[in-house]
Design a protein around this nucleic acid. Structure first.
Length: 789
RNA sequence: GCCGAAGUGGCGGAACUGGCAGACGCGCCGGACUCAAAAUCCGGUUCCCUUCGGGGAGUGUGGGUUCGAUCCCCACCUUCGGCACCA
């Protein structure tokens, strides 16, 4: 047998897999056990990076493992080819986004095939293809019909570099998630998904899915549910009731002033025609336009409006201020200020010398609160809300921190929003049968503040679909996260020309049994997709309410302490395949440590894997000429069965991928030490079979060299013989006062009395007991005896 | 500031349910093979002490629970992540 030649055997088997369409799956028959394995789809820059390698190799191991355990596995791949990441890649490379995106897809697809990943390529979809975005637009129209999409003038996050609006989810520390520039606040007409309509369900249904706790916490915090009360404060002079939201209605008697956000329409109403009008409006204008950066300094400023509101509990008139520490976006944009029990209100009261009244004492009991004095603050929350409720001035209320998802982008490379603006009819949806609204070619697609489509007269000028009069198309395009909110549904039925997907087919596969991707999408993609899924379910288009039943986050691959990612480059997997082959890279990336932990890239690590695979090749090859009798019971046979048990448990139950490689290494070590064991061939076959999900090429080649029947990728997963897992002798640990003093080999299954007797007989134990009286003896059968003296 | 996760040899990590700390691999040391080197194989490798029998310490730090703690509890330190005027 020749030496291990990774390139020869990898090319060979990749060709076979392609010719035989080895990883293509049909729709499952009813009751057929099936499994939907998915990893987050990549943005198509030209090159794979090590993060992709980790992500997709993980999914690949699960895919092979599940296939060989009798499941029909859907494991597709596609490209998030619209949107900022793809467009910026095109700008960087200088050229037409369509051309560059398609070239990048071709290049990255070739690299994926070279990694040997078990992907059903017949189901590939790309977001920029008209056959895909037609249905993105179709889904948009359904959201519009159901009142879950709207257009509104609103303060939005504007990235001055990328020249576009960003969703709240993609502003990180006040900066753009793609380019890192500081984001500005701008008032613009924008399109929103009404994700807030599902805030309570998005929160509650987290209990129904098997996700990492930290991810659930991120989403929980982002949704930010607060229970409290909505209370009405009256402004008698204007005959006006202003609602406020508070989580602490128990402190109402301590509300000594009232504050309105600078952006609030109330500001104008409160000061109209008064002597303070000019001053207050000037303040509000400046405060509302304050740059994001200054928010970190947080020095509270404000101005008195000259108006007063009535505290509904005390009847006292309290001054109304406008101040920049109150946010328009949360609650009602106005608050009751309780300086005694709220740090922010306290700071403001000190600055402007406003009265402070304590209403809850150090023991948490109410004071200065009339008939409520003496109640615990928790009791008072209910009591005061109920009391105000009787007078129609308060009710229990729940508030969410989550805001609607702004998804229109003033950029070229995205799905056009399929509506027409008509002077007479307003916003008119493009009829379904006119979809897709094709993205036209434009001469200059680069960002310049105005959406590039706006200057394409041919595209823009269309008759209104409703009245036939002159209309103009929407020039903004959709955020790439709209595309990726439903791609996993398209995979189930990728060639459907009548609908985005057939419900019955989608229901057969959904929900995704195992989703794998970065935690950086915790409050973006992973939240948007859940929202889409719930809406589609409500309209009867889909049978599930959650898209991702189980979720796993792979760690980051670091180089010199820095995370390698799409934008930063780093080590090129393509070059590593040239140098070492795909199997060594696959093993290396999973052997480094637990897959959910960050790993450091080191060049000598991969050489070690090559060395292991050469040894694996040689040791297995040496056993090829032998035969192993059925059910032979030798130490090596036992080791092989133990390895089956460990690997199966590690992947199937524990979802860990590094220790199985170590287990196979141990088996190979033992096989190489005892080549004449009658179970040598069985051990070799077992090692090859178990390592196949990690290193499918070399294992397939060795499976053939061993003369085993059929294709390994279709072979059933090995099953451990329970009788060979039971040990005849066990090593008994002997402790004195909790310290290990001896280890002896004893037959398994001895009684406690027998074990204690053996322990007392040990010379080393006796030396440490040294005649002292035994106070206690602890026995763990087959494991340990601890004598306490 | 608030919330959460993680800290184990020279290095990556293992120890799954409170029961042998350091599996597996890297690196290093020694040996075999070789004219030599590479490759390969064999042995050693937590630290300290040792009369070579063994003894002591040890999983970020300090305490606690327990016969027994890397694992559970409390406090602190460090690193990473989430939120960041959310009323």
């Amino acid at each position: 047998m020749d030496g291990y030649d990774a390139h020869r055997i990898e090319e060979r088997w990749q060709r076979v897999w392609e010719e035989e369409q080895a990883f293509h799956v049909d729709d499952p028959a009813p009751d057929e056990p099936c499994f939907y394995q998915l990893e987050m789809l990549p943005y198509p820059s030209g090159h794979l990076h090590m993060g992709h390698v980790l992500n997709y190799t993980l999914g690949d191991v699960v895919t092979h493992f599940k296939r060989r355990n009798g499941f029909k596995v859907l494991r597709p791949m596609g490209f998030d080819s619209f949107g900022l990441p793809a467009e910026n890649a095109a700008i960087k490379e200088g050229g037409n986004p369509l051309e560059i995106t398609e070239r990048n897809i071709a290049s990255i697809t070739r690299q994926m095939r070279r990694m040997g990943w078990a992907i059903d390529w017949q189901r590939q979809v790309s977001a920029h293809e008209p056959t895909y975005y037609r249905w993105t637009q179709w889904l948009f129209l359904r959201f519009l019909e159901h009142g879950l999409v709207y257009r509104k003038e609103a303060p939005v996050n504007w990235c001055p570099f990328d020249q576009t609006v960003l969703a709240n989810e993609h502003v990180v520390d006040g900066r753009c998630w793609r380019c890192g520039n500081v984001v500005e606040a701008r008032l613009m007409a924008q399109w929103f998904f009404k994700i807030t309509a599902y805030a309570d369900q998005l929160l509650a249904d987290l209990d129904t899915i098997d996700w990492p706790e930290r991810t659930k916490k991120i989403q929980t915090a982002w949704i930010g549910r607060s229970e409290g009360a909505e209370l009405l404060f009256r402004v008698p002079e204007l005959d006006l009731d202003i609602p406020v939201f508070t989580t602490r209605p128990d402190t109402l008697f301590g509300a000594t002033f009232f504050v309105v956000a600078p952006e609030s329409p109330l500001v104008e109403q409160l000061v109209a025609g008064t002597e303070r009008e000019a001053e207050v409006l000037a303040y509000a204008r400046i405060a509302a336009a304050r740059p994001t950066e200054e928010r970190e300094q947080r020095e509270k400023t404000g101005v008195f409006t000259g108006r007063h509101a009535v505290n509904p509990a005390t009847g006292a008139e309290i001054p109304i201020w406008v101040a920049d520490y109150v946010l328009m976006e949360y609650g009602t944009g106005a608050i009751m200020a309780v300086p005694a029990h709220d740090e922010r209100d306290a700071e403001f009261a000190r600055t402007y010398d406003l009265p402070i009244v304590t209403v809850v004492d150090d023991d948490g009991r109410l004071v200065n609160s009339a008939q409520f004095d003496g109640l615990s603050w928790r009791e008072a929350v209910r009591a005061i809300t109920a009391w105000l409720g009787e007078e129609g001035r308060g009710r229990p209320a729940i508030n969410f921190r989550l805001r609607d998802w702004s998804f229109s982008r003033q950029r070229y490379w995205g799905a056009p929003i399929p509506v027409v603006h008509c002077d007479d009819c307003g916003i008119v949806p493009v009829p379904d049968d006119e979809l897709p609204v094709l993205l036209p070619e434009v001469s200059d697609y680069r960002p310049k503040g105005q959406p590039p489509l706006a200057s394409n007269e041919e595209f823009m000028n269309v008759p209104c679909p409703r009245c036939g009069g002159p209309g103009r198309r929407e020039a903004d395009t959709m955020d790439t996260f709209v595309d990726s909110s439903w791609y996993f549904l398209r995979y189930t039925d990728p060639h459907n020309t009548h609908a985005p997907f057939d419900r019955a087919v989608a229901d057969a596969w959904m929900p995704i049994d195992q989703y794998i991707g970065g935690i950086d999408h915790a409050k973006g993609h992973l939240l948007y997709s859940r929202f889409f899924c719930k809406a589609l379910n409500d309209w009867g288009l889909l049978g599930v309410r959650e898209p991702f039943q189980r979720l796993f986050h792979q760690g980051w691959v670091r180089l010199g302490g820095k995370r390698m990612s799409k934008s930063q480059g780093g080590v090129s997997p393509d070059e590593l395949i040239d140098q070492f082959g795909a199997d060594p890279i696959r093993i290396y990336i999973l052997f480094q440590g637990p897959a959910d932990q960050d790993i450091d890239w080191t060049p000598d690590g991969i050489e070690a894997t090559v060395r292991f695979l050469r040894r694996f090749w040689r040791v297995v090859g040496d056993a090829a000429g032998r035969t192993s009798p059925e059910g032979v019971d030798t130490p090596l046979a036992r080791k092989a069965h133990e390895t089956i048990d460990r690997v199966t448990d590690d992947v199937g139950r524990r979802f860990v991928f590094n220790t199985p490689i170590a287990a196979v290494m141990e088996l190979i070590n033992e096989l190489s030490r005892s080549p004449d064991d009658p179970a040598a061939r069985f051990a070799a076959e077992t090692a090859v079979s178990l390592l196949q999900p990690w290193a499918p090429h070399i294992c397939e080649e060795l499976w053939e060299a061993l003369g085993c029947s059929g294709r390994l990728w279709e072979a059933p997963w090995p099953v451990a013989d329970p009788s060979l897992l039971e040990r005849e002798t066990v090593e008994l640990v002997l402790q004195v006062n909790g310290k290990v003093r001896d280890r002896i080999s004893v037959p398994a299954g001895l009684s406690e009395e027998e074990l204690v007797a053996l322990a007392r007989a040990s010379e080393k134990v006796r030396a440490h007991v040294d005649g002292a009286a035994e106070r206690r003896v602890v026995v763990v059968p087959d494991k340990l005896v601890n004598i306490v003296v």
